[in-house]
Simulated assay, not measured.
Amino acid sequence: MKLGEVEVTKVVEWAGDIAPIRSVLPDTPAELWRDNQSWLAPRHWHPEADAYHAAVQTWVLRSEGKVVLVDTGVGNDRARPQIPLFDHLATDFLAGLAAVGVGPEDVDVVVNTHVHYDHVGWNTRPDGDGWVPTFPNATYLIPRADAEWFDPRNAHRRAGVDPLRLRGSHLVYTDSITPVLDRAVLWEDSHRIDGNLVLEPAPGHTPGSSLLRLTSGTDRAVFVGDLLHSPVQILEPSYSSCFCEDRALAASTRTRVLGRAADLHELVIPAHFAEASVAEIERSGDRFAIRAWRDDA
């Protein structure tokens, strides 16, 4: 789609069922899903298996003559013991990029909204016994707070984290972050990419979780990363996912971001919504509602 002068394209790396829905969103009541089943199923929830249905995808933005990737998925050939579903994944993601006219050397900017395995994987590719940047001409934009939080040298800051999850995040850092640090900008507070695009903090899911605002002409959008995992969090922003490091802060950030999006008519573009993935929202009392899907399949 075209938003002002910015062209936005979605490239899906993987889509499918991940886990039981209330293991992903543990505080959500059964009636919330049941009352909204008519539109949540089957694109976001498979009720027959009570399964969370989602996608891992990258947004390709063409803005002011540059190619910008927003999040880079899981990546191939990686040890991911913390989530066996994506352990040593093998997809044709690069072919998907090529199909929309983007080769690795064409990418100017890579945005990692946060440092989780499914947002940084294609930062790199295997090369012999190590890893090298997949996008050799790109600047990688990584929130400093996450670069520091997930650095294995700072593991003592994450006391109490499940050992398997901790080991998994160390592997992610080693194969997907360390190899690009020499070409990365570790930003804080905010970072303007160009006249249309600016990164801002959106903490809670991780300490450095961020969003990307797009403003071009009269069009506005906000790429919210993992601030949202399911559309039910638009209806009930207080519900955070099991993946959030600070659930209360994530809920507060989500409410704030959704409020601005409703007031300023920003399209809301989360990382993992499958099929229908670009939402127009509006206020509904002290909560929010989905007015329409811009890319409704």
Score class of each variant (00 low, 15 high):
Ser284Gly: 05
Trp293Cys: 09
Leu164Asn: 14
Gly4Pro: 08
Asp246Gly: 10
Ser63Tyr: 06
Val24His: 05
Arg125Ala: 02
Pro20Asp: 08
Arg158Tyr: 11
Glu282Phe: 06
Leu32Gln: 13
Asp151Cys: 05
Pro20Leu: 07
Leu40Asn: 11
Ser240Ile: 02
Arg291Phe: 09
Glu5Leu: 12
Val278Cys: 08
Phe150Gly: 04
Gly217Leu: 12
Thr9Ala: 11
Ala289Arg: 12
Asp106Leu: 00
Gln57Tyr: 02
Arg260Met: 10
Tyr52Glu: 06
Ala15Lys: 14
Asp92Arg: 05
Asp295Gln: 10
Ser176Pro: 03
Val172Asp: 08
Phe135Asn: 02
Asp219Leu: 05
Arg183His: 14
Asp118His: 12
Ala145Glu: 14
Glu7Cys: 06
Ala184Tyr: 04
Glu7Ile: 08
Arg43Val: 14
Val120Ile: 14
Lys66Arg: 15
Val6Cys: 07
Tyr173Trp: 15
Ala221His: 06
Ala19Gln: 08
His44Ala: 10
Val100Trp: 01
Ser23Asn: 13
Thr178Met: 15
Ala95Tyr: 00
Ser216Ala: 15
Arg34Met: 09
Asn76Val: 08
Ser241Tyr: 03
Ile83Arg: 11
Trp14Tyr: 11
Pro20Trp: 06
Asp296Gly: 14
Gln82His: 14
Pro207Arg: 06
Thr253Pro: 02
Thr91Ala: 05
Asp50Glu: 13
Val180Met: 05
Thr91Trp: 11
Thr253Trp: 01
Gln57Ser: 13
Pro20Ile: 08
Val67Thr: 15
Thr58Tyr: 00
Ser277Ala: 13
Pro104Lys: 00
Ile234Ser: 04
Trp39Cys: 12
His44Tyr: 15
Thr206Cys: 09
Pro42Tyr: 13
Arg213Glu: 09
Ala55Asp: 08
Glu236Phe: 15
His114Gly: 03
Arg80Met: 11
Val107Gln: 00
Ala276Gln: 13
Glu282Asp: 14
Ala49Cys: 08
Ala90Trp: 07
